[in-house]
């Protein structure tokens, strides 16, 4: 659950925010002709159980600098749209060939591969369009919108998430660090940075958000990997009780736990630099603990 180090109630903060985000997302993809493509887009974007971590991060970072929540919602929705688009394409048979996503059949399983490709192709531009058409101009100057759009485009492109997916497919032994950083780290980084940009944070603060977001993103994934490994080991023990945990996997988990501790410390250190903004920084701290502590406690 929620770490005792924070009195901030992350769960109710997130729950409330997720509800608002889900409602905005629902409104952002009205069904029109041809209906099939809208059904496919909505199926993935509005899937139950999505944690909405990128949009929440974006809104929280915007509010840290006194930005209005309404200034951040369109970008928050756009982050979720490009996130969904890349997941839809990652799941395709020619990619990871995943049949299930968030407990539901993958997009291409329901709508076919051609529609899944097109749903992704439509969600990327819808994200950019949504930012342009829905961000209140009196809250965010156009120069900042351009920075936000460039940030998101860079993050999903050939040096960002697409690169991560490619390296994931190639999966060379030395590629691991890069994949974690790019594929999972960068959306968190991008989300935090976009929030700061929308609120008009100065360059130093945006750079600090960048380092914070990057650390949280990688931390989130490292912990995912640790949990997956632990689960695998438990399964293995159930299957064959005489056989202990493999030496390699134990060593791997221990090393990963160390890395996670370092990342948590790094992320918090960055946030210490936002002290002057008072209690508004609290949600960002709780993000770090949440990323680290889901389901088990690092370092006992």
């Amino acid at each position: 659950g929620i770490p005792s180090t924070s009195s901030f109630d992350l769960r109710s903060y997130w729950t409330a925010l997720i509800q608002e985000i889900n409602q905005k997302l629902d409104e952002s993809i009205p069904v029109s002709y041809p209906q099939g493509i809208y059904d496919a887009m909505r199926y993935s974007v509005l899937a139950n159980g999505a944690k909405r971590a990128p949009p929440v991060m974006c809104i929280t970072a915007c509010e840290l600098f006194g930005g209005h929540r309404l200034a951040a919602f369109p970008t928050a929705c756009a982050l979720e749209m490009v996130h969904s688009a890349s997941l839809i394409h990652d799941d395709l048979p020619c990619m990871d060939n995943d049949q299930v996503r968030r407990g539901q059949p993958a997009n291409h399983v329901v709508y076919g591969e051609d529609m899944a490709i097109l749903a992704g192709d439509a969600l990327f531009p819808l994200g950019f369009r949504h930012i342009v058409s829905h961000t209140p101009p009196e809250l965010v100057p156009e120069t900042r919108l351009l920075q936000v759009i460039a940030e998101i485009a860079r993050t999903v492109g050939s040096a960002g998430m697409a690169a991560g997916q490619f390296l994931d497919l190639e999966a060379g032994p030395n590629a691991v660090d890069f994949i974690q950083e790019k594929k999972f780290g960068e959306l968190a980084e991008c989300s935090a940075v976009c929030g700061g940009l929308l609120a008009g944070a100065d360059d130093d603060d945006v750079q600090r958000l960048r380092r914070y977001g990057k650390a949280v993103g990688i931390l989130y994934q490292v912990v995912d990997d640790i949990l997956a490994e632990k689960m695998k080991n438990e399964e293995r023990e159930k299957v064959n009780k005489r056989k202990g945990k493999s030496y390699v996997s134990v060593y791997g988990v221990e090393k990963a736990v160390e890395v996670a501790e370092d990342l948590r410390a790094q992320a918090k250190k960055e946030l210490d630099g936002f002290e002057k903004y008072g209690e508004k920084v609290t949600p960002l701290y709780s993000f770090v603990d949440y990323a680290a502590d889901r389901g088990f406690s690092i370092g006992g």
Binding site: P34, G36, D121, A122, L123, P125, F128, R129, V132, L146
Partner: peptide, 27 residues
């Protein structure tokens, strides 16, 4: 000026998504 670039981005995005290029491919 940035306002024009923002407008251009909106136009391009609309032209290629589910109201544009993708809609044509689907039909």
């Amino acid at each position: 000026p940035p306002g024009r670039v923002v407008r251009a981005i909106g136009e391009l995005a609309q032209a290629i998504g589910s109201e544009g290029l993708v809609a044509g491919q689907v039909v």
